[in-house]
Simulated scan of single mutants.
Amino acid sequence: MFNILISHIQQKIDLDENEAELLKSFFIQRLFRKKQYVLQAGDVCEYLAFVSKGILKSYILDEKGIERINMFAFEGWWISDFNSYINQERAVLNIDVIENAELLLINRENYEELTKQIPKMDRYFRILYQNSLVTKDHRLIISNNFTAEEKYLYLVKNNPEMIQKLPHNLIASYLGLSPETISRIRKKLLFK
């Protein structure tokens, strides 16, 4: 489980063998089954979760009980309700498992201790947060300014893993479209 995390970290910063070994002591390893909740809205988010295996989604339920997907997390991705985690407020997001998952979880206390004992991990997390902010800004621009077809084509080009691994109803929710709209777009593109 830790090989993927350490590899992910090594892409951003250099860890020596001792640091990599120490890093492991700050995480809890957990297995989750398909459809199992990692976090439910209303609870306080206790962990940042690194996905070693599987696929997760974070979402809200709208007033009609329809899922509005915020993000997916594949192998090598982090997921959490960051506002809840950082501010210890009730979560607004649900996080559950789409495909059986192996997660590495770190609580706030261990996170703080990790960054004290391995200071360069502060840089690693800063890089992650910067990238996350850029991604969310870009997603907001796409959501507000692209047509339904442009949104879908952008996803196909930039996140083919999503298109290949996820059913179109989840992709539709992520893009803010109906499954019928996704079907029409796919059919139209097939005949182009």
Rank of each mutant, 00 (worst) to 15 (best):
V97C: 13
R33E: 09
K157N: 13
Q29A: 13
K136D: 07
A73P: 08
M121W: 02
S25Y: 06
D122V: 06
A148T: 09
F27N: 04
N3A: 11
R184K: 13
K187P: 01
G65D: 12
S178G: 01
H168D: 10
I95T: 11
H168E: 09
F146V: 09
H168M: 12
F125M: 05
G65Y: 12
S178L: 07
L48N: 05
L153E: 13
Q29E: 15
L133I: 09
L105I: 02
I182P: 03
N158E: 14
P160I: 10
L170P: 01
Y47D: 03
E21T: 12
F2S: 04
Y59D: 01
I95D: 03
E67K: 07
K53T: 11
Q29K: 15
N131R: 10
P119E: 14
S58D: 12
F82D: 07
F146I: 08
R90T: 13
I13H: 11
I127C: 05
F27V: 06
V44C: 08
K34L: 03
L15N: 02
R33V: 00
S58A: 15
L104M: 04
L190M: 12
Y37E: 08
G176I: 02
K24N: 09
E67V: 02
G65F: 13
Y85S: 04
I98Y: 08
I66D: 13
R30D: 05
N158W: 07
N145L: 14
N169M: 06
F191P: 01
I98M: 09
A172H: 06
L23F: 11
Y111Q: 02
R90Q: 15
Y154L: 01
S52P: 01
V134M: 09
I171Y: 10
N159D: 07
I141L: 15
D81I: 08
D62I: 11
L177F: 06
N94P: 04
I185K: 08
L31S: 12
Y47C: 03
D62L: 11
Q29H: 13
R184M: 02
E19A: 14
V51A: 05
A41Y: 04
M121N: 03
L190I: 04
S173K: 03
K12S: 08
I182R: 06
K34T: 13
I98P: 03
Q10P: 00
T181G: 01
M121E: 01
K165V: 08
N70L: 05
Y85E: 04
M162H: 08
P179T: 06
A172Y: 03
D137P: 02
Y154N: 15
E109P: 01
Y47M: 02
N158R: 12
F125E: 05
Q11S: 13
G65T: 12
A41I: 05
Q36Y: 10
H138M: 07
N18H: 12
I28N: 05
L104D: 02
G176E: 06
